[in-house]
Design a binder for these strands. Structure first.
Lengths: 165, 165
DNA sequence: CTCTTTGCAAACGATTTGCAAAAAT
DNA sequence: ATTTTTGCAAATCGTTTGCAAAGAG
C-alpha cells in the first residue's frame, strides 16, 4: 500500500493546531538533536510515518508508507537502529520474528495482540494492561537493582483474531 | 555465534531414577504421540537436548548439543516448528530476533533476562515474576473472552548483564 | 569544511522449501 | 503398505556491510 495522500502530521488533533512546536514530530526531532543525531529528510519522513502509524509497524511497511523513493530501504533499517539506540522507538516482533518498530515519545505505550495469521496489530486497552504494566516495571526495577543496565523488555501477545476462522 | 552456556544437567540416567515413565522425556514423547506425531530418533534427541538445557536455547545451539551428526540442522528447524504447534515448546527471541525454544511441560516456566551483548539467558526467580505471571494470564483471559483463539505470549527482558570479572 | 548520513550493490545469517530416500506405524 | 519424517541442496527472506557520493551543521 503506497499511501501518498498524507501530509506532514495527520493524527492526534484535538485542540486544533495550536503551537506546532510540541507536535509529536517536533518532539521526536528534538530527541534526535539532543542525542547528537542529524535531522535529515529521510529521518523526518520515517518519523512521520512512524507517528502516523501509531503502532508497531514493520520496516517493510514503513518503507512502503514513504512516498515514491523518499529514501532507501537500507536507510530505514539504519535509522530505526539508531532511533532504537536512543530510545526513540521501541522494538517488538511479529510471530515470525520480523522486527516491528513503534514510536516512543513517553506517553501511551500500549501493549498489543498480533494476529498469528494476518500479522494485524491491535492495541489492548489500558485498563486491561494496567496491572501488567506495573508488574513489568517492577521486574525491571529488580533487575536494575541486581546490576543489569539498559534494561528493556518485549511483551507481545499472539493469537488468531476473532474475525478469521 | 555466542554463548554455549552449559548448566551441567545429568539426564542420561533416566533408567536409574524411580519410575521412568514420568520423566520429562517420556512426558514429552507422550505429548507427541497424542498429537499424532511420530516418535523418531531425531525428535528424541532434540527433546533430550531441550530438556537438558532447561531454558530458552537457539536452534544452532541445540543442534550443536546433539552428538556428531545425530540429525540435520533442517530437521531441528522442522521439529521445533512442529513442537511449537502442539505447544510442546515455547518460542522467544534473542534481542536480534533469532528464535529461541524452551521445553514446555506445564510446570515451572520462568521468565528470563537475555544479555544484549552475549545472549546469555538467565532465569528470573519466581518471587520476582509472580505478579507478572498473574497479570499476563489475566490479559490472556480477557483476550479469549473477546474472541481471540490460540492466545500465546512472549515476555522477554533484555539488558546488559552485570560484569562478573 | 568536516563529519555524518545516504544510496547502491553485494554479503550475510537465519529460516524455508523441493524432492527422493529412509523410517515409523 | 502407507504415511510421515528425514537429509541434502538450493532458494528465500529479513537484515547488515563496504564504500563513494551527497547532505547537515
Amino acid at each position: 500500500m503506497v499511501a501518498s495522500n498524507h501530509t506532514a502530521h495527520p493524527v492526534s488533533d484535538e485542540a486544533a493546531q495550536s503551537t506546532a512546536s510540541d507536535s509529536p514530530l517536533n518532539l521526536a526531532c528534538a530527541r534526535l538533536k539532543s542525542a547528537g543525531l542529524r535531522i535529515t529528510q529521510p529521518r523526518i519522513a520515517i518519523l512521520g510515518a512512524l507517528i502516523a502509524r501509531g503502532q508497531p509497524t514493520s520496516i517493510e511497511n514503513l518503507h512502503a508508507d514513504l512516498k515514491d523513493g523518499a529514501c532507501d530501504l537500507v536507510t530505514v533499517y539504519r535509522c530505526l537502529a539508531a532511533f532504537e539506540q536512543i530510545g526513540l522507538v521501541k522494538r517488538s516482533f511479529y510471530h515470525n520474528g520480523t522486527a516491528l518498530y513503534a514510536i516512543n515519545l513517553g506517553a501511551s505505550n500500549a501493549y498489543h495482540v498480533i494476529c498469528k495469521e494476518t500479522n494485524q496489530v491491535t492495541a489492548i486497552d489500558a485498563d486491561t494492561t494496567a496491572q501488567l504494566r506495573a508488574a513489568v516495571e517492577s521486574v525491571e526495577q529488580v533487575l536494575k537493582e541486581r546490576g543489569y543496565t539498559e534494561v528493556t523488555h518485549v511483551v507481545e501477545f499472539f493469537a488468531v483474531a476473532p474475525k478469521t476462522r
